[in-house]
Structures are given as structure tokens and as C-alpha cells.
Computed example of a mutant assay.
Amino acid sequence: MTTILGTYDHYGYAAIALLGTFVGAWFLLWVTLRSPWADELHTWRGVSPPFLGVVGVLFALTLAFLANDTWNAHDRALNAVYQEADGLRSIDALAEHLPAPIKARVVGAVRDYARITVTEEWPLLARRQNSRAASDQLDRLLSLLAGPDVSAVAPTGVHGLMLSQAVQVRAARGLRIALSQTHVNPLKWLGMAFLGFLTMISIAMVHVDQGRAEILAMVIFAAAAAPTAAIVLVQGNPFQQPTVVHAGPIAALAAEPGAQSSGAGGAR
């Protein structure tokens, strides 16, 4: 249970943000309109409306920065997948310069890695895990490309390019796995929540002697801030729903004709 909660913590934080905002708005409305201290608070009327903008801008900027971090992580994960697939396809294409038996082994190793990545590792990314089998297959591919069988028959320039592409695949996979480990940073969101609550206090005090206007302003703010924060939070991990980075580019390589026969050759 602890593992599951840790894996999907962003959904819990999204629920807290959604409910907490409306509970906070209700609490402030009760304090300023219905509580025993309401009359005392009305003596603080006169807070200038432009003051609301100061706190509101700070809250908006904080939420915007957090949203930018989320979108940036998603874009980096997508780029990593395409770089990984591009590196594999490059090795596949460069293998055309090798003798048929060596080419079959290289292509088989590439296809085996792509297949294991798609079928075994991708489902694990949503649980912030990775596949040992995929790691071992990538090591076998690198070992094959760096070994004497390939280096002896590959043109010098081609061999160097194949090795550099294999290194790119490893780096892209490492970035992909690192981004799949993304967790919500509670301190960042606690700071954002604090600024949001201060913004609601500012709304309440600016309209403290205008009950209906205060209710309307508070509801509008809560309706804008809470869903926005929840949307950002539920997309905190790029390999989990609702916006999943799919393995399409790598899956296309694994599904190409000849993958099975090539994979058999790579197992020799």
C-alpha cells in the first residue's frame, strides 16, 4: 500500500488541492460573514483593491513556474523516447554496411532491445520502475558493437558512428528512467498553497463589507485556481495517466518485418 501511495502521490495531492481550496474559501467566507468575529473584521474595511493584485500575481507566478516544470518534464521525456528510437534506427541502418551474418546479429540485438523495452519496461515506468532485462539487452548490444566481430569488419567511420549511437540510446534511456521517477515536491506546492490562501484572505478583506461581492469573488478564484493546480498535479509523471508518453517510435521498430528472425540471430 505504501508503494502504491508513493507511486501515485500526485493524484492524492491533486485531490488535496481541489478540496482544500474550496474548504479554505468556505472557511474564510464563514469567518468574515457568519462567525462571532465577523463584526470585528468588518472594522478592517478599506483595504485597497490593488493590494489584491500583489499577492495574486505572486500566486499566479508560482503556479506558472510549477506548471512549466511539469510540461518541461513531459517534453524532455518525449524527446528522450525519440532520441532512443533514432539511435536504434541509426544502428539498424549502419548495419547495412556489415557482412550478412554480423548484420543479422546486430539487427537482432537492436530488435530484441526494442521489443523488451516496449513489452516489459514500459508498463514498469508508470510504477517508477525499470526492466533489468532491458538493461542487460542494451549491455549486450553495446558489447557486440564494441567487440572484435563488428570492429574487424565494419568501416572505421561506420563503427564509430554505431558506437556513438549506442551511447545515445543508453543516455536517452537513462533520462527516460530518471523522468519516470518524478515525484511531487511537497515544499514547492506547500509554498504555492500558502500564497493561494493569502490571495483568498486578500479577496475576503478587500470585499469584507460587501458580502455578495465577496462570495462571488471567492468562488471565481477557487473555481479558477483549484482545477488548474489539480490539472498540473495529475500530470506530474510523464509516464502515468492522463498524459502518457507512449513507446510508439520504439514499438514501430520492434514491430518491423523480420524482427523475430533477426532477434533469433541476435541470440546466438
Rank of each mutant, 00 (worst) to 15 (best):
I203Q: 13
R140P: 01
P227F: 10
R132V: 15
L142T: 08
S180W: 00
N130E: 09
L195P: 12
H183V: 02
A229G: 10
H159D: 04
T182M: 02
I231R: 00
A252Y: 03
A152P: 03
S164F: 15
R115S: 13
V158L: 14
P148W: 06
T156Y: 06
A172Y: 00
E121I: 07
L190A: 11
V158E: 06
P148E: 13
I215S: 11
S164Y: 09
M218W: 06
M200W: 02
A252C: 06
T243A: 14
P227E: 11
A222R: 11
L198M: 15
G160Q: 13
W122E: 08
A126R: 13
V206I: 15
V167I: 05
Q181E: 04
A230V: 12
A154Y: 07
E121L: 08
I215E: 09
E214N: 12
L198S: 12
K188W: 07
S143N: 11
P257N: 15
E256P: 02
I177D: 10
A178F: 01
L144G: 00
R115P: 01
L198A: 14
W189Y: 13
I220D: 02
T156V: 14
H183E: 02
E121F: 02
A223E: 09
L141D: 01
R127N: 15
P148L: 05
S164V: 04
G147W: 07
D149E: 15
Q240V: 13
A251R: 11
A152K: 04
I231Q: 01
L233S: 08
Q165R: 10
D136A: 15
Q165F: 12
V169H: 10
L187E: 02
I201A: 12
L163A: 14
A152R: 07
V234W: 00
F239R: 01
A225Y: 14
A254D: 07
E256F: 06
G147R: 03
H183D: 00
A134V: 08
R170L: 04
L142D: 14
Q165L: 00
S180C: 00
Q235R: 09
Q241T: 07
L198C: 10
T119V: 04
V245S: 01
T199F: 11
S135L: 07
S151E: 11
M218R: 04
V206R: 08
A230I: 05
I215A: 03
M162I: 08
L124N: 08
P123T: 13
A204M: 09
T117Y: 09
T156P: 01
R128N: 13
H246G: 11
T119Q: 11
A152F: 02
Q168S: 08
L198E: 15
L163W: 00
L142I: 07
A217W: 03
L190C: 03
G258A: 10
A133E: 14
